[in-house]
Computed example of a mutant assay.
Amino acid sequence: MFLSDDLLSAIHSRANAVDQANVFPDEDLRDLKEAGYLKAFVPQEFGGAGLSVEEICNEQTRLAQAAPATALSINMHQIIVGLGRHLVANGVDSGRQILEGAVNGDVFAFGISEPGNDLVLFGSITEARPDGEGGYCFHGQKIFTSLSPVWTKLMTFGRDDSGEDGPHSVFALLNREGGGFTIADDWDTLGMRGTQSNSTKLEGAHAPKEQVLQRVTPGPSYEPVVFGIFAYFEAFLAATYLGIGNRAIEVASDKVKTRKSVLNQDVYANDPDIRWRLASAALRMNSATAEVTLIARDLDEGRDRGELWYPQLSAAKNAAAEASLYAVDQAIRSSGGSSYSNSNELSRLYRDVLAGLFQPSDQESLHGSWAKVVLGPVTEK
């Protein structure tokens, strides 16, 4: 394991205070930096620890068991590092700056989602205006930009309509010190409060030519920048949500071993209904973990899933998010009324796990993708 148990214990001890104060976990970030975790996914030849996709997934699950919001924040940085790896592996040299930046202390954030845009990664409503020298200025609104108080570089994209060959999506890195953006103080949410995923208004933020990662045709594709973002986003998000479900079962298991039934004069851990509830939660988590692990291994090995890559990546994320939601629900039902208290960890886990309902790919997108796999496209009458 890369992250020590002592480090995770310290992070866990701060999670409730971070949630209650609705602040970014600065101490967690400091400790994770000192542990080398922000460069753990960087290949050894670039100066990182060279962890595999499967190993990062395992660490993200463990980190989420300690503090879900911290894990979800750092998750976004690891996605961009994964993108850098994928670009370089596919001959796109612009990805080198991501790997070199992570080794040199950069914190990468993820600026993709936009209000009301259900195309998400496959088409932007932000304008990417050419600067005439190969770079771009970005104008638009990004939401759910985790790590907003601390990122040094923001990976974002916009739509370039200037070419004669049709619109293109432009993916680029923005420097924090370059300005041209405003970060709103609008992250007052039900859960995952420590991510501080404030909205970011791009007001001409400039990416010079060397920080443009790729310019590609909008839509789903296997262009390295598109597939790289999608693949690591879904895999690492899935692994992070697994940690919430695992932790909920741990908390409930400890509780029912001491919670006693007056009626039966025995602890609830011996009640067959409670045993069934927690066993069913563990079974769902076991299946989701297997699905995520297989996805991670196939990414590591570069296996070709063909046209099933996108729907199967989405399925793994949804399996993890839904299994964890179910596990938290069963844990709360098993633990009794005390879990309804705001001070109870299960209450926080319940609020945090709900964020998985909204992050791509959502249930509607997932079922649409699989309906196309099973039935083909919708036919005209």
Rank of each mutant, 00 (worst) to 15 (best):
Y232K: 01
E177V: 15
P68C: 09
D300L: 08
T200I: 15
K257T: 11
V92N: 10
T126S: 10
T200K: 06
A279D: 14
M155L: 15
Y222M: 13
Y268P: 06
S287P: 00
D19N: 08
P208Y: 06
R351D: 15
L237N: 11
L99H: 05
G306H: 02
G101Y: 07
N104E: 14
A49S: 10
L278E: 12
I274S: 07
C57R: 02
Y350G: 12
P167A: 09
D266Q: 13
R348M: 14
W276Y: 15
T240W: 06
Y340G: 07
R176M: 04
D188C: 11
W187A: 03
P167M: 07
I74E: 06
Q20F: 08
D188W: 13
H139K: 00
T156G: 04
R348A: 10
F138G: 03
L237C: 12
F358W: 07
N175S: 14
G180A: 06
G243W: 07
A355M: 12
F138T: 10
T156Y: 01
M285F: 11
V81T: 12
L346P: 08
R303Q: 06
F236E: 03
D165I: 00
T152C: 04
Q141P: 00
Y310K: 09
K372I: 02
R129A: 09
A102P: 10
G376N: 01
S148M: 07
S253Y: 07
F108A: 07
V378P: 00
H139A: 07
R275C: 09
L202A: 06
L119N: 09
R30F: 04
A320Y: 12
A269D: 10
P224D: 13
L349N: 09
L202Q: 03
